[in-house]
Amino acid sequence: MTGKASTRAKNKYNAANYDKFLVVTPKGKKDDYAEHAKKHGYASLNSFVVQAIEEKIQREGSGDHETDPS
């Protein structure tokens, strides 16, 4: 599959199977993060970010209490 039909099919699949959210960083930090991810063998910046979030959740526990993020 190539072309518009393929793009529509991929977009439909992605919309049904993935959530998206925006990460905002100071200018230049995205490149720093991507370089670090590549240097340490991550498949992508996304995989690095997702793993970092998962590790943080594991360390802090998944309790229902609120914490101050600052």
Score class of each variant (00 low, 15 high):
A9T: 11
D31K: 12
N46C: 03
K12Y: 05
G28Q: 09
K10D: 05
I53F: 11
E55H: 06
K27N: 05
Q58V: 11
V50S: 00
Y33I: 14
K29R: 07
A34S: 14
K12S: 13
S62E: 12
A43Y: 04
L45C: 00
V49D: 01
K20Q: 11
A52W: 08
E35Y: 04
A52G: 12
A34Q: 11
I53N: 01
Y42R: 02
K30L: 11
F21P: 03
L22E: 10
T25F: 13
I53V: 12
L45S: 02
N11L: 12
A34W: 00
G41A: 08
N46S: 08
G41P: 04
Q58L: 14
G63W: 02
V50Y: 00
H40E: 05
G28E: 03
I53L: 15
V23T: 05
E35H: 08
H65T: 13
N17D: 02
E54I: 09
K20R: 14
D19R: 11
S44L: 10
I53W: 04
K27E: 10
S44V: 03
I57S: 05
K39F: 01
D64P: 01
K20M: 11
G63N: 06
L22V: 14
H36N: 03
D64W: 02
Q51M: 06
G28F: 03
A43Q: 12
F21I: 11
G61S: 07
L45E: 04
D32W: 04
A9E: 09
I57Q: 13
N17W: 02
K12I: 12
R59G: 03
H65P: 00
I53E: 06
K27P: 05
P26M: 01
D64R: 04
A9S: 10
G63C: 03
A34V: 07
S44G: 01
V49W: 02
G41K: 06
S6H: 15
Y18F: 11
L45N: 00
H36C: 01
R8F: 07
K39A: 14
H65I: 11
A16Y: 05
E54W: 05
K27W: 03
K12R: 14
D32V: 13
N17Y: 07
L22F: 07
A15Q: 14
T7W: 05
K56N: 09
Y18P: 00
V50K: 07
K56Y: 15
I53A: 06
V24D: 08
H65W: 12
Y42T: 02
D31H: 12
E54V: 13
S6R: 12
S6G: 15
Y33T: 00
N17T: 15
A15H: 14
K20C: 08
K29E: 12
K12C: 04
K12W: 08
K56W: 15
I57T: 06
S44Q: 11
Y18A: 01
V23Y: 06
K20D: 08
G61Y: 00
K56M: 13
A52N: 07
A34D: 13
K56D: 13
Q51F: 06
Q58K: 15
D32E: 15
S44H: 01
A15T: 09
K12M: 05
S44D: 05
H65F: 14
